[in-house]
Each structure stands twice: as C-alpha cells, then as structure tokens.
Simulated assay, not measured.
Amino acid sequence: LHVERRPRPVPPPIEELVDGVWEKTPFGRVFVVERRLPSTERHGGAPLDAVLAHPPEHLALVEEEPPAGFDFSGAVFLDTETTGLAGGTGTIPFLVGLGRFEGDEYVLRQLFLDDPAAERGLLAILAETLAGASGLVTYNGKVFDWPLVRSRFLLNRFRPDFLAVEPPHVDLLSWTRRLWKLRLGSCSLAVVERGVMGLERTDDIPGAEIPELYFAYLRGERVGERMARVFFHNEYDVKSLAVLAARALHLAENPLERYEDPSELYACCRLPRMAERRVELLSAAIAGGLEPEVERQARWELSLHHKRRGKLDEARRLWEALRRGPYDLRPYEEEAKFLEHRARDCAAAKRLVEEALERCGRAVADTYSRARQRGALVYRLRRLERKLAGERVADDEVYE
C-alpha cells in the first residue's frame, strides 16, 4: 500500500518580514538580525547607556549579595521568546535577543530558529556571543530564561566554558519588586515600562500569544506582520533592560531627591544599605502621602526605629496615632509593655488591654486570628490583675 505524504508547508520566508541574514552553521542555518544603535539613543526618556554611569559597586544598593565581577559595560542583556511559558525539557528558545555595549554603540542581536532541528546552530552562535561577557542582565531570567538556555545547551551535549560556573547575573525582576511593586501592583515588564519609564507599547504582541504564533509560522500559516512584531517585542524588551537598570540605580542612589511617588521612599527604606537613612526615608514617605494601609505600616516601622534608639516619646506618639485608626494589636501591645515595665503604671496598662480586647472581638473576623490575639491579651490582663492585687509576679518578658 503506497501512502502519498503531503509536503510540509513552507513557512513564509522570514527575510521578507524582518531585515536580517541567514548564518550557516554545521548544524543548520540560523536567521540573525543585528542592529547597531547609538548608545545614546533614547528609550523611555533615557539614553541606553545611562546605566554605564553607575559604578558596579552601586549594585549593593539594591542587591543583598551583588554578583562578583559584574560590570554593565561588559554584560549581555538577554531576553528569550520560547515555545512555552512553563519551561521544561520540551520548551525551546526560538528567538534569543542579546544586547551589549561595544564602544559608542548598543549592539542588538536576535537569533531566530526557523527550523527547530537547527537548535544546535543557534546555541553555537549564542555561545560565541556569551563568551567573555562579564555577566547577564535579564528580567525573571534567574527563574526562566537562563535555566532554560542552560538546559538546552546540556540537552544538546554542548558545554561551552561559561557553563562551568554560574555567571554573574542581575535579574531586574527582583529590583522591580523591591522598588515598584507597592506602587504598580503587577511587575510585568509592560506594566513597569508604562509606570516607571513612561513607555506605552503599541501594536505589540502579548507574550502569552507568542508560542502559538511561532507554531503557526512553522505550520506555514500566513502570520505575516504578526511574526515580525515578535521581533519588535523582543527588541523592545532588550532595550528596556538597560534603561530599567539605570532607573533603579538612579533612584536607589538618592531616593529623597529622585523619587516620583512616596511609595518609592517607603520601598527604598528597605533596601540593603539604607539602615542609617531609614528613619529619614520613612518620615518623608509618610509626609508625602501613602495609601492608608501602607501609611499605617510605615508608621509602625518608624515607631520601632524610635523605640530601638531610645526615643520612646516619639514612638509612643506613633502608637497612639495608630490606635486611633483601624484595630491593630501591635501598638496596643507596645504601649502596654511600656506602661507595665517602664512607667510602672499597671492600672493604665490594664485599661489599655481591656480596650484592645473589646476592639479585637469586634474587628477580627478570622476565628483563628481572633483566638490567638485574645489569648495573648487575656494572658497579659491576668498578669496585670495579679500585680494590681499585690501578688509577686515573675515577669516573663524583658522590655528593650
């Protein structure tokens, strides 16, 4: 029985959609797009090379453990478009975008896999580009892009030298979460571009649609301009990495002079090297006007800083202000501790605990939380009552 096989549909030639060249490798051909942009080209209101003005040691302002040997001037800014968003061994990066500063240019290269069988060829070109880089800059790349790329090298039995050790890696998603999640809510790159960099993508392809679009291209469907926009989407990402890094460092270096929203001051007070400026930043954030819930948390944190520095009058004023707002056990506990152990006024402490008990019963809906808080308050109330009755009570807490 002879079964006639239908010829595989021929995809639309990618060179008709995107300006690039075919690069032949021993493992198949790869479509390569290269654009040499002036490093001073503006993107999101800032030049691409703005990040180079920030010395590598300033990474410590936003990174708990800055990667050793990292330097933006020699780093590769990397973003991938893949056949799936969940990762796994069946997912491949079919478009790899790479940005790198070379002299007075920002060189943007895109490696496109026209045929998945030529994946090893793409990896060979990628290995050449990554060789000698001082590190990687990605967005969620520590979790997704780099583990995926690394696994594709290993699955293809390709072990370039840079895979021997983990490269210095700056993942800007962690920076974004520290600095802007409170203000923006979502930390998707498109949201961050709009909210932080003032960029609005137009005629863009949503990332979730890109895998299926690539499969449609492989099936020979007429995806035309939509496929070309995937390249634009990827290029935009790679350029945004450079500018976003600069924006984050610009803010972290001098938040009081450079913030645009009070929530950024609150976020900066939690950065690794801001301990000495925390009170100043918290005070400025509160004065600038935070969302009510965030403001209450900022006042609470500021009160603890005052307490640790022995400024109890200032701490107590904050606790009093917090008690006038929505119920919160913490300022009641702190004031009760002060009254009991420092002021030696057990009667006033007892009245405060009784007030907290009454408010807790009305305000806390969750049964477990209400029982836990009431248990702590009742325990404190009973101890105060024994003290007021003249009993000798061994204190089981130290006021510091």
Rank of each mutant, 00 (worst) to 15 (best):
H2E: 07
V10T: 13
P12V: 08
E15P: 09
V21N: 02
K24A: 03
G28E: 11
V30L: 01
V33G: 01
L37W: 03
P38V: 02
S39V: 08
T40A: 11
E41R: 15
R42E: 08
A46E: 03
P47H: 12
P56E: 00
E63D: 09
P67L: 07
A75V: 10
F77A: 10
A86F: 12
G87P: 00
G88T: 00
T91S: 06
I92M: 05
I92P: 10
P93H: 10
E102D: 13
L111R: 03
D114T: 03
S134C: 01
V137A: 02
V143T: 10
V149D: 10
R150I: 05
F153S: 08
L154E: 15
D161K: 06
L163T: 14
L173M: 10
R177D: 09
L179D: 00
L184K: 04
C187Y: 13
S188P: 00
A190R: 14
V191T: 05
V192K: 03
G195N: 13
E200L: 08
D203K: 15
D204V: 01
P206V: 05
E212Y: 12
L213H: 08
Y217T: 04
R219D: 13
R226K: 14
R226T: 06
A228I: 09
A228D: 11
Y236D: 15
D237S: 03
K239P: 08
S240K: 07
L241Y: 04
V243K: 09
A245F: 01
R247Q: 12
L249G: 07
L251M: 11
P255C: 06
E260T: 14
E264I: 00
A267L: 05
C269Y: 01
R273G: 06
A275V: 05
L281F: 11
L281H: 12
L282K: 06
L282M: 03
E291L: 07
P292D: 01
H305I: 05
H305N: 15
D313G: 09
D313P: 15
W319Q: 03
D328N: 10
L329A: 06
F338W: 15
R344V: 12
K350R: 15
G361I: 15
Y379K: 11
K387R: 15
R392Y: 03
D396N: 09
